[in-house]
């Protein structure tokens, strides 16, 4: 898929671990791992909103389109 997830990078910039983020936004670590590895087929706006709020970033910081 040409959508690249930069969640690892943003997490590192914020000094946060995956399990902490999963707990804050209310999803399982397994689901967060699916998102991080690019296996997810869709992301809910509510999930994206929660991630952006927790990491204080924009959706464009997490997602990138590479044709």
């Amino acid at each position: 898929m040409p959508i690249i997830i930069h969640l690892d990078k943003v997490l590192e910039e914020n000094g946060m671990k995956s399990n902490e983020l999963a707990e804050i936004i209310g999803i399982t670590t397994a689901n967060l791992s699916i998102l991080k590895t690019g296996k997810a087929k869709a992301v809910r706006f509510s999930t994206l909103e929660a991630i952006c709020e927790a990491l204080n970033c924009q959706p464009g910081d997490i997602l990138e389109y590479q044709p």
């Binding site: 689901n31 699916i34 296996k39 087929k41 999930t47």
Partner: peptide, 8 residues
């Protein structure tokens, strides 16, 4: 089903 399961 897979699409639903892989929606985060």
């Amino acid at each position: 089903l897979e699409e639903n399961q892989l929606t985060i």
